[in-house]
Design a protein around this nucleic acid. Structure first.
Lengths: 337, 337
DNA sequence: CAGAAATTCCAAAACGTTTTGGAAGCCAAA
DNA sequence: TTTGGCTTCCAAAACGTTTTGGAATTTCTG
């Protein structure tokens, strides 16, 4: 069928060894033969069999990423950007990207990870939407399987990650609103198990405290990082006898849900109600009105995570295994322009 | 390191052969041993090495998909839905999904496909955003590499695909607008090389003809299937001395760009201007106002494409190699409710 | 010029499966 | 008792690389 290294060797009257080493650029093969081999290999259209190479080298040159998706779509453009970053960086380092979808904390999710790990289909994985106690981190660490995380867990302190300091970000967001004159500021978060919820909520509380605004539990709603979640939580908040004048969403989708709830009640966002999100994905640019948000460098973070992961796979020790970045506050019309 | 089939065999005092065949459920191994093998394998946490299995079976159980992305993000939620479908179906048939991104018709794109094909990293690929003359289809067909397409090419008539009849769809869309009283209907398309442009534009023309509306070239803009493309093309159209009263976008993103252009000019969409899109992705639900659109079953189509592809990989002949589906017209406020 | 060192090549051993082509043992039929 | 057919198992041969541990050959060194 396909042309193998044996064919090339036969064509050149050389041994398989020499062909292999010539192609890999070892210097125990003469300059002249190296060139000859390279040329012939190219001419014959020889490309090494991945299966054979993987078997011999005990490496697949593949990294895996499981999209934490619920149903027929993963609506969050965060993932689109993230995947684009993963893929681009992987390719640039001659790796490939394996992708699957699974609902967090299900048997299906567990299966994907163990399968990839045990069968050595992938050499390492990238974790996102990290949970405070994340069995994935535990499991992978226990098996000495390379992985890096977007965000940190509470349990495994030694694991490499890149974290965006959303706590500081949300404090800044609250400050911004306070400066605009708001005192009743609501927050719609995510399920408690996610690290991001702990951080963003803490930042929200930090911000209130810094402004000497008493914390009011009634102004806190819980969403699920989707538009629908934000919409429903916002309905409750806006129906309060003394509703908030500003609402923070744990991410842009949540905030977009808030916008919809406001619109349905005839509330003009930007004037009567301030709304802000987090992520800085493209949704935030295209909502009506455009969303004030904290932009995190999704694409670049993804690329850097891959760099770190590949370094780990190659057995290197990371100079900076734990990186913390600051999000960028982007002020748009949804908080008054 | 990991537990191999040899370890299991040794533990049971059986041959490798028997263990292998027991696990694969062959009936030339006694019921009792089969159970014993299965139990021990599970207990020891044995999972076959993918590399070894791939090498021996000359199959990877992996399918590939290249996202036609431009830059740091692939903004079109179409791809999110599509990938979700591909992944889900693949997993359910014990396949995995390899994903990469590449700008259409670049050296990088070519490289990805040839690498996947030649090195047998993947057993087959899925093509989307098909071009009228698609070198990918030619190349893959020439090498007898299994593939299926979302949409058809002009060149290779025998290739399996699933097509959504967007031509009929756009004709229906025009009819809908005509019934609402529009006679000056614009169209913002995509680069000519894409099959979808040929079809959707043809549908637009069909619709005009059916309503006895003369075709006016000035009302046709060319976008690039992004919001920005739609936005710019719409600016031109809306600046005409006698601007259209309705604009069709080749997809939802294009239409969303039109909405923005209209908003900037103070035009109230739904009343002063009708706008419609295509795809029925979630953007169309969340624009302001919500978009009338032609919904195509992205998720299910993706799943079916994978089913077809895997059948091909397994050497079966497809009962229905070429499938044509009708999109569903969804009327929302952007064309008057 | 002998011996050492460098250069260039290669045979053979993995890597961990699946599959082929029997072999051994047992039972039933003749 | 022999023959043939089941049932249950296995040794060995792939699959196509990379890598190890030399073996030739040539060049340098004293």
């Amino acid at each position: 069928m396909a042309v193998t290294i044996r064919d090339v060797a036969k064509e050149l009257n050389l041994s398989i060894t020499t062909v292999s080493r010539a192609l890999d650029g070892y210097d125990d093969v003469a300059q002249a033969t190296r060139i000859r081999v390279r040329r012939t290999a190219r001419r014959m259209g020889y490309i090494p069999s991945r299966a054979a190479r993987n078997l011999r080298r005990q490496r697949a040159d593949i990294i895996g990423y499981v999209i934490p998706a619920r149903g027929t779509r993963f609506t969050d453009p965060f993932f689109s950007e993230f995947i684009a970053g993963l893929g681009d960086q992987a390719v640039s380092q001659n790796f490939d990207l394996l992708v699957s979808t699974a609902t967090p904390d299900t048997a299906a999710e567990k299966q994907v990870y163990t399968r990839w790990m045990q069968s050595r289909l992938a050499d390492g994985v990238i974790l996102s939407r990290v949970r405070l106690d994340d069995w994935r981190a535990k499991q992978l660490a226990k098996n000495h399987f390379p992985f890096v995380m977007h965000g940190r867990t509470r349990g495994e302190p030694a694991c490499p990650f890149i974290e965006i300091d959303s706590r500081a970000g949300f404090a800044r967001l609250v400050k911004h609103l306070v400066e605009r004159g708001h005192t009743r500021i609501g927050y719609i978060g995510a399920p408690k198990k996610f690290t991001l919820q702990r951080d963003r909520f803490a930042g929200y509380v930090d911000g209130l405290r810094a402004a000497n605004i008493p914390f009011d539990e009634a102004l806190v709603g819980v969403g699920d990082l989707t538009r629908a979640g934000g919409y429903h939580a916002a309905q409750t908040l806006l129906a309060l006898p003394n509703p908030p004048t500003a609402i923070l969403g744990a991410n842009d989708l949540t905030a977009d849900g808030v916008l919809r709830a406001a619109r349905e009640r005839g509330i003009v966002v930007g004037r009567e109600l301030a709304v802000a999100g987090y992520d800085g994905t493209e949704v935030s640019e295209h909502t009506q009105p455009p969303l004030t948000t904290l932009k995190q460098p999704v694409y670049d973070t993804a690329r850097n995570l891959v760099k770190m992961l590949i370094a780990l796979i190659q057995g290197e020790t990371l100079a900076e295994p734990q990186i913390v970045l600051q999000p960028e506050l982007i002020i748009r019309e949804s908080t008054g322009g």
